[in-house]
C-alpha cells in the first residue's frame, strides 16, 4: 500500500506539470492586454517599460519556468517562513497579481476562509443528510419514504444551483425576509448575536449546495446498500438470528460505505468548481468569485494559479480516494 501511494504520488508530478503547461499555453493565447486598464495618457515607451516590468517581453518558456519555480519553491518557502519565522523566501519574487499588484497567494489565503466555511459546511451537511436517507431508502425499498427520497434526490440532482439559489432568495429573503441575500464577509463572530447572524447568512448558500451534494451521494448510498443487501453474508447474518438492526448497521452499512467513501472523496474538489456559481449567486467573496473577477480582468497569474490549485485538489483527492479504497476494502490489492 505504501509503495502504491508513493508510486502514485510520483506519477502525479508529471500529470500536474502537464496540466500546468496546458493551462499556461491556453492563457498564452489570451487576446487581452494586461495594460488595457491603464490610462491612455501613458506614453508608449513607458507602457513598454511597464510590460517589461511584468516580464511580458520574455519568451513563454522562461515565464512558464519562472511561474513553476515560484509555485513549487518560493510559495512553499513563504509558507514555511510564515509558520516558523524563518527567512528562506527573503528577497525572492513571488507570483504577483496583475490586477492588484499583490502576491496571488496572499489574496487566495484571504479568500479561502469564506469558501471553506460555506462550501465545506455544505458538503458536510450534504453527507450527513445523504447517508441516513440512503440507508433508510434501501432498507425500505419502494416504501413511501423511498419514493419521496428518490424523487427529491432526482430533483436536487437536476435543478441547477443557480436556479435553487435564486428561488431561495426570492422566497426567503425577499418575501419572508428571514435570511439576508448577500453574504457579509466583514462580519466577525464575537458574541452570540453575531454568531446567529453568521448562521443566518450561511443558511441559504449552505442549503443550496448541500441539497445538490446530498442528492448525488444519497443515490450512491442507496444503490450500494441495495447491492449489499442481496449478498449471501446478509442471509447468513440473519440466519444466525441477529437483529435486523445489527445486520443493517453493522454488516451491510460497513460494506456499503466502501464505494460511497471514495465517491465522497472524489466529490470534494468538484465542490470548489461547483461553488463558483453559488458564490456568484449569493455574492460570497470566496475563491470562485475571485476566479471570475480575475478572468474578466485578464489577470493571468491569478487565473493560472487558481486553476492550477483546483487541478492539484482533483489529483490529490483522486489519490486519496484510491488509497482509501485500498484501506477500506482488503480485497483490493494494488501491488
Amino acid at each position: 500500500m505504501l509503495t502504491f501511494a508513493i508510486r502514485r504520488l510520483i506519477l502525479a508530478v508529471p500529470t500536474l506539470l502537464f496540466i500546468g503547461l496546458v493551462i499556461f499555453l491556453l492563457l498564452e493565447l489570451a487576446p487581452g492586454d494586461p495594460m488595457a486598464d491603464q490610462p491612455l495618457t501613458i506614453p508608449p515607451e513607458v507602457r513598454e517599460q511597464m510590460r517589461q516590468a511584468l516580464g511580458l517581453d520574455q519568451p513563454w518558456w522562461v515565464r512558464f519556468s519562472l511561474w513553476l519555480y515560484q509555485i513549487a519553491v518560493v510559495e512553499p518557502q513563504v509558507l514555511i517562513d510564515h509558520l516558523f519565522g524563518t527567512s528562506f523566501a527573503e528577497g525572492k519574487a513571488r507570483i504577483i497579481s496583475w490586477q492588484t499588484k499583490f502576491p496571488v497567494m496572499d489574496i487566495i489565503v484571504q479568500r479561502l476562509p469564506q469558501t471553506l466555511w460555506v462550501v465545506g459546511m455544505a458538503y458536510l451537511v450534504g453527507v450527513l443528510i445523504a447517508i441516513p436517507i440512503g440507508i433508510i431508502s434501501a432498507v425500505r425499498q419502494y416504501s413511501a419514504f423511498d419514493q419521496i427520497g428518490t424523487f427529491v434526490s432526482m430533483v436536487g440532482f437536476s435543478v441547477p444551483t443557480f436556479f435553487t439559489g435564486v428561488l431561495m432568495i426570492v422566497i426567503f429573503s425577499v418575501n419572508l425576509g428571514w435570511f439576508p441575500s448577500i453574504y457579509n464577509t466583514q462580519l466577525r463572530v464575537t458574541d452570540w448575536d453575531s454568531f446567529l447572524q453568521q448562521l443566518r447568512q450561511m443558511a441559504m448558500p449552505v442549503f443550496v449546495l448541500a441539497l445538490y451534494n446530498a442528492s448525488q451521494i444519497s443515490r450512491y448510498m442507496r444503490a450500494s446498500m441495495l447491492d449489499n443487501l442481496q449478498q449471501d453474508y446478509v442471509r447468513t447474518a440473519r440466519a444466525k438470528g441477529m437483529t435486523e438492526r445489527t445486520v443493517v448497521l453493522r454488516h451491510v452499512l460497513r460494506n456499503s460505505m466502501i464505494p460511497v467513501v471514495t465517491v465522497i472523496a472524489l466529490g470534494i474538489p468538484s465542490i470548489f468548481g461547483g461553488a463558483i456559481i453559488t458564490e456568484q449567486v449569493f455574492k460570497v467573496n470566496g475563491l470562485g468569485q475571485l476566479l471570475i473577477i480575475a478572468i474578466n480582468a485578464n489577470d493571468l497569474p491569478m487565473v493560472q494559479t487558481l486553476t492550477f490549485m483546483f487541478a492539484v485538489l482533483i489529483v490529490l483527492f483522486n489519490l486519496i480516494a484510491d488509497i482509501l479504497y485500498g484501506i477500506l476494502d482488503p480485497r483490493i490489492r494494488y501491488d
Partner: peptide, 23 residues
Amino acid sequence: TDLVLALPILPLLLVMMLLFRDP
C-alpha cells in the same frame, strides 16, 4: 482520458470562452 478528467472543467470552460469568443 485520466489527464483530461483531472482538469478543472468549469474554470477551464470559463477561460476558453473568454479566449476564443472574439476570434
